[in-house]
Simulated assay, not measured.
Amino acid sequence: MIILVMGVSGSGKSTVGAALAKALGAEFLEADTFHSPQNIAKMSAGIPLDDSDRWPWLDAIGAALDRSVLENRSVVLACSALKQSYRERLLPPGRRDGKVIFLQGGADLIADRMNGRSGHYMPPTLLPSQLATLEPPKDAIVIDIAQGPEAILKEILATLPR
């Protein structure tokens, strides 16, 4: 089983994804670790990525998911996966079974969170481009991020099939 925890930067994907993986005894994959140095430099400079930047990144994540599937390991993936085509690239129908958790929240709340974190290459100035790119999923478990990480985790665990 693959669980994709998705949302814009600052929505809490990494925090929630790591906690979810731990609760489920699953492997945790952080999509940010798959970005090329060029992508990181571009985002650090406040330049939004485009699809030509994202396809190789998504393919690298997909290869890691394939390895996990081949080894019969459950995975929680924290990844923005902003467009439906990106989610289909990560969870192609008939190839990888997965659930999508969409961490959704208001722009002001997310901007506050982004402004309060340190050590991340994604500047808050890129939030508007993330929100503009976002295609909310139709087939996801939608979680309001206004609550704390513990409440979010509890809500996700209650909605997942056992």
Rank of each mutant, 00 (worst) to 15 (best):
113 R>K: 07
123 P>F: 06
141 I>A: 00
15 T>V: 04
97 D>N: 11
54 R>F: 13
93 P>E: 14
82 L>H: 12
20 L>S: 07
100 V>Y: 06
59 D>Y: 09
5 V>M: 00
138 K>P: 01
87 R>P: 05
122 M>G: 12
101 I>M: 09
86 Y>T: 00
150 E>A: 09
40 I>Y: 09
157 L>P: 03
20 L>A: 04
101 I>E: 08
124 P>Q: 13
87 R>H: 06
132 A>I: 02
119 G>P: 13
4 L>Q: 02
145 I>A: 05
159 T>D: 06
40 I>Q: 12
63 A>N: 02
101 I>G: 09
82 L>G: 12
7 G>V: 04
45 A>N: 15
55 W>F: 14
115 N>D: 14
131 L>F: 02
96 R>V: 09
127 L>M: 11
30 E>D: 15
149 P>Q: 08
33 T>F: 01
112 D>E: 15
43 M>V: 12
110 I>G: 03
13 K>L: 05
85 S>G: 00
31 A>F: 11
137 P>W: 03
74 S>L: 07
137 P>G: 04
130 Q>C: 09
23 A>P: 03
11 S>H: 02
92 P>Y: 06
126 L>S: 05
20 L>E: 04
54 R>Y: 11
79 C>E: 04
4 L>F: 05
86 Y>K: 00
28 F>D: 02
111 A>S: 13
71 E>S: 15
44 S>L: 02
87 R>T: 00
124 P>F: 06
103 L>Y: 01
82 L>V: 12
1 M>K: 10
6 M>E: 04
90 L>V: 12
42 K>R: 14
57 W>K: 07
63 A>G: 02
159 T>S: 14
86 Y>L: 05
100 V>K: 04
110 I>P: 04
98 G>T: 03
127 L>V: 10
148 G>S: 04
44 S>Y: 01
123 P>M: 07
67 R>C: 06
15 T>S: 08
79 C>W: 12
93 P>L: 11
64 A>F: 02
98 G>R: 05
79 C>Q: 11
125 T>G: 09
48 P>L: 14
65 L>Y: 07
57 W>E: 09
28 F>V: 01
83 K>T: 03
1 M>H: 14
159 T>A: 14
127 L>P: 11
142 V>P: 01
86 Y>D: 04
147 Q>V: 08
